[in-house]
Design a binder for these strands. Structure first.
Lengths: 214, 214, 214, 214
DNA sequence: TATGAATGAGGTTTCATTCAT
DNA sequence: TATGAATGAAACCTCATTCAT
């Protein structure tokens, strides 16, 4: 019966989402290889086996296409973070799990996390429309708030150090993201691919330990 | 008598350095406001109250001008880190001082530290000449090695956790830089200028605690 | 039926060739009027009633556009020279016909022959890619070899003087081209348009006579 | 006594000519290596161990500097041609001597002869001031007339073919210059340096033979 | 006369974006 | 909806020329 009572509009809508997703895949690949500036719409189009003009039927411009990638990963983060929050485990274990979320995402696509980071950089932020900026803030806030809640619990339970929970959440988040970016750039410089993951794990555990009392 | 009858060559050399420095100042400002891509040589020139052509008497091209800014801060970091290393204080105190170095530099010019960070990103590295890349590696290595030495001492003295000292140094460095960049981007998003410094201090102390034993 | 339902690909290909040819026509005109250096891509574009960017869809850069003109005439020369070679006439008559080839080409477009000549000049050769240089050599060699064969026959038949046939071919070719260029420049200086063709004919017959025995 | 009664003005004038000549030497070298367009005033200046600004005290602009080189060789040609004309030898021998003049000049500096040739090309002529153009015409005419006279004698003596002497002179001149340029470009293409001179000699003798009766 | 730093017009080229088909 | 040829603004960069010293 499936598909029988799906209206034409729904099917079209679905096809549209499908196509959009294909473009994002192509864009992810090209941005990863070339970087924001060097990547061209033409290259992305050819990667997606479409013509340049078609991209503009799905994304207003290059900037929005690029930002969409970052928003995608933000959504993913929010989803995973919320999953962790809902688990019936101790706050310490939750912090451990947050770490896993970052590592998994880095594992899935190292470059997209880096995009996310660059998204936060001044250069990009300056050129975004208010609408997109709002969306970024929305998702940022959501995942941020979830982490803050966990941290707050930890403080209330006397497990984490007595600092403002928002600040602690920021620090946790910033350290995770910053370390990923930095370690990844070291990887690029030295062409060592293996040491990244173990370094990340050590780094995260250090921070995890740092926010604990004593 | 020295300096009294400074030769023509010396004076010219000095004027040249002076002019170069003025251009760097203008470039720093424009790159900060606009970002690497959006900043134009024309804008930098007009900021320096020079004509575009003049920039090219002092820097081979835009990329080199931009990279010079980053190398400048790398040198500064090396110098400050070495100062700390030579101090007659405990390793724990040295780690504290490293933190101060980062904060001071961020204080001096928040954007240049971000340049330094972007310098490490794949996109930038791809477009640099081998010569410049070598220089970056040189200074990176110098400061890195100094930190590694301090960490190693800490481990030998049983103060820091038993991890590979190079990895620990990486993590320390990465956390500092990553946090600065991330926190700064939050500042940009929220227009809160004040919370940055205190957040940094807390973040760094967390990491400092994380690398200690027990 | 052929051509009736010409496929889309064929039509596009044809349009592309058509457009390329239009650009070459415009370029020929502008280069003729201004010379390689003084001619601008903008002028060529406006002559072709296109925008500057469009030129780059068909030619990689200015140099390649200019060189394409010369290669075009080289191809034409090769074709005409081969036609002559295949004729069932005496070597003396073939030499006469070679002369006609030059005159006809000069008649068709005086400036393009001059481009061909300049193409051989050091300045131009230095700036060409290896690929284009190879193509030039290919066509040069082809027409050169055809002429050499005719000369060799003439020597074997005891009609031409006993010199190395390659050297004789060079001299013939060089005299033809050189005289065309020189005479054309005299025309420019004196604004006499009519005397060119008859002068050429005399010049060529002198050389034709010079290579004959006794 | 020499120099004693040379006035200050004369000495200055002499020094000025000397300096001008040094600049021309440097320019000749750089234009030879780089070609008209690629050569820069800065490079010429540094070759002459002067500053760019100084060049403009002796030559109005780059074009005039370049043209001066060609006029120099024109003067040289005029002088040598006149020497030949005044010799008490047969017209046939004079034609032989003209050939030697070309070869000697090519031997002295192959590139300057090529400059002379390019000077006659449309591109250059279009950009010259009327004054310079007049000077070129003057020297061109002088040497041309001398050659015409010799040719005319040859015709009157029944030695050369019955063509308009001016046309014959043109052809002689054009063949010599054209062959030099063409052969030289073959040399550049093939990197054979030795065959040039012998090829030239053969070429010239062919033309010399061509203009003779029977 | 000589300098050489500075100029700035003007060139080539790229590429995000549009629009007729 | 999809195309992709065409656009044209805007960037980087060069270098002949000037001018204060």
């Amino acid at each position: 019966m499936m598909g029988f009572d799906m209206g034409i509009y729904e099917r079209k809508q679905r096809e549209r989402e499908q196509r959009k997703s294909e473009i994002l895949d192509a864009a992810r690949k090209v941005f990863s290889e070339k970087g924001l500036h060097t990547a061209t719409m033409e290259k992305i189009a050819s990667e997606a086996e479409l013509s340049p003009g078609t991209l503009y039927l799905y994304f207003k411009n290059k900037e929005e296409l690029h930002t969409s990638l970052s928003i995608e990963i933000l959504k993913r983060l929010v989803k995973e973070v919320h999953k962790v929050v809902k688990l019936d485990i101790s706050v310490e274990e939750k912090i451990e799990k947050f770490m896993d979320v970052f590592i998994e995402i880095y594992d899935y696509d190292s470059n997209i996390l880096i995009n996310l980071f660059h998204l936060q950089s001044g250069e990009t932020l300056m050129n975004l429309s208010d609408d997109v900026l709002k969306e970024i803030k929305k998702y940022s806030t959501q995942s941020h708030r979830a982490i803050v809640d966990v941290i707050r619990q930890g403080i209330e339970q006397g497990i984490f150090i007595d600092e403002h929970p928002v600040a602690l959440a920021d620090i946790l988040w910033a350290s995770y993201a910053g370390i990923v970016l930095w370690v990844d750039s070291k990887r690029l410089l030295n062409n060592k691919k293996d040491f990244v993951k173990s370094t990340l794990r050590t780094a995260f555990s250090i921070i995890g330990k740092g926010i604990k009392k004593v």
